[in-house]
Computed example of a mutant assay.
Amino acid sequence: MTTTTPAPAPKPMSRRELEARIIAKAWKDPAYKQRLTSDPRGVLQEELQAIDPAIKLPGALQIQVHEENPNLFHLVLPRNPNDVKLSEVVGDNLEAVAPQTIVVLVAAAIAVVVNAAAAANVNAAANVNAAANANSVANANSVV
């Protein structure tokens, strides 16, 4: 009797990792770069399906490729997580949200947790220092 082990779940990939993968391929392979510039949606769909075959790009999602040169710099401004409704992220239709928005939302949530933890640590340290200082003053006063 042969048992098959289920395939491992695909490793989550951040937007930066996906972009780096695509850029590296374009730099190495001129034919891939040509396909990327002429059919960015098709290439992105292929890359996403290589990660997880179930991923489908939303039909309305537009994809543009911009190539920098010595006289042209591109700055990409992702969607502001504050402008994304919770219903766009939580619900049955996750395909309605661009993948980068989900990554940005997760990163923003992590940043909030990290900042809250850092603030709690600073407050705890301040409380410990204040208590130590108060004890030092009390001890110093009792010695005199």
Rank of each mutant, 00 (worst) to 15 (best):
T2G: 04
T2K: 08
T3M: 13
T4A: 08
A7H: 02
A9I: 05
P10C: 04
P12S: 03
P12R: 10
R15Y: 11
R15Q: 09
R15A: 13
L18Q: 09
L18C: 07
E19M: 14
A20I: 03
K25I: 01
A26P: 08
A26I: 00
A31E: 05
Y32N: 03
Y32H: 03
Y32K: 03
Q34P: 01
R35V: 00
T37Y: 01
T37Q: 10
T37V: 10
S38K: 08
S38M: 02
R41Q: 00
V43C: 06
L44H: 03
E46L: 05
E46V: 01
L48G: 02
L48I: 02
P53H: 10
P53T: 11
I55L: 05
I55S: 00
I55W: 06
L61C: 04
Q64A: 11
Q64W: 09
H66A: 12
N69Y: 01
N71D: 07
N71P: 03
L72G: 04
L72W: 07
F73W: 10
F73D: 07
V76Q: 01
R79P: 00
P81F: 08
D83S: 08
V84G: 00
V90I: 12
V90Y: 07
E95L: 06
E95A: 13
V97Q: 06
A98L: 14
A98P: 04
A98H: 13
P99C: 09
T101G: 06
T101I: 15
V104R: 15
V106S: 09
A107E: 15
A109Y: 15
A109G: 13
A109M: 13
I110C: 10
I110W: 11
I110V: 09
A111Y: 14
A111Q: 14
V112L: 12
V114Q: 05
V114Y: 04
N115V: 15
A117H: 12
A118H: 10
A119E: 08
A120S: 14
V122P: 06
A124E: 03
A125E: 06
A125L: 12
N127V: 12
N133I: 14
A134K: 09
N135K: 15
N139R: 13
N139A: 12
N139S: 15
N141S: 08
S142T: 09
S142G: 03
V144A: 15
V144P: 09
